Computed example of a mutant assay.
Amino acid sequence: MMKRYAALLLTAALVTSLTACNWDKNMDSSSSGELSSSSSGSGMERSMPMNGDQLLENRSLQSIIEDIQAEFETGGIYQPGQVTDTVLWDRYGLTTDQVADYYGYYSTADGYSDNLLAVEAKPGQIDSVKKTLEKYREDLMTAMEKSGIGYAYDRAKNMQIITRGNYAFLVAVNSLEADSTTVPLFDSENKLVTEIINKSFA
């Protein structure tokens, strides 16, 4: 009886040792910066960033955009249209070679520079995505300067391009009603948006 009990104890100790060893190996591989895949809302390729901050597990591009929208009149976008593959290329100049995932809205009204776009870049493409969005901002500023509509140029000029790891955010949100004569508070709006984005990363 004692021999049988000793054998059972030895087996349990061996299993525990092997389990701990495998757990340590898994921890080592997960912290080495290797790419890992997961499903994405748009069905496009998704990978963990290699060069910076990671999106929290309970956050998504859509949830970040929705949290930003909740803070502003008309969701931050006057007469919103949802960003699609076609809009991503035709409006922003971004391609499927650059983008792994995205979510956002833009103003469909003439003379409005409202934009709220979140992009996950494919590995190695974040700098390219940022440059493409910067060119869009410059072109929009030129167009809005000629329009003479309200604060369209000022909003385009104060548009933020925020990058975190493999993610980029293009933000020009509108906190005012269409007929408002109040001067927009660009600094406070930009600070609020930046805080929401920063809280979504670890």
Rank of each mutant, 00 (worst) to 15 (best):
M44D: 07
R46G: 09
R46V: 04
P49W: 01
M50P: 13
M50V: 12
N51S: 14
D53F: 13
L55Y: 05
L56T: 02
R59N: 11
R59T: 02
L61V: 01
Q62R: 13
Q62N: 10
I64M: 11
I68P: 07
I68Q: 05
Q69G: 15
A70E: 04
F72C: 06
I77K: 09
I77E: 06
Y78L: 11
Q79F: 13
P80H: 14
P80Q: 12
D90Y: 09
D90S: 14
R91M: 10
G93E: 01
T95A: 11
T95I: 02
T96F: 09
D97C: 06
D97Q: 15
Q98T: 03
A100F: 03
D101A: 12
Y102I: 00
Y102C: 04
Y106D: 01
T108R: 11
T108A: 14
A109I: 00
A109T: 07
G111M: 02
Y112C: 03
L117W: 04
A118L: 07
V119W: 02
P123K: 12
P123S: 08
P123R: 08
Q125H: 12
D127A: 14
S128L: 05
K130C: 03
T132G: 09
T132A: 14
T132Y: 04
T132E: 03
K135I: 11
Y136P: 08
Y136N: 13
E138R: 15
E138W: 03
D139W: 02
L140M: 12
L140S: 11
A143C: 01
E145M: 10
K146I: 00
K146D: 13
S147W: 00
G148L: 04
G148A: 05
G148F: 03
G150S: 12
G150C: 03
Y153I: 00
D154I: 00
Q160M: 10
I161C: 08
I161G: 10
I162A: 12
T163S: 13
N166A: 15
A168I: 00
A168R: 05
A168T: 00
F169E: 00
V173W: 03
N174E: 08
S175D: 15
S175P: 15
L176P: 06
L176S: 10
E177H: 09
A178T: 05
D179H: 12
S180P: 07
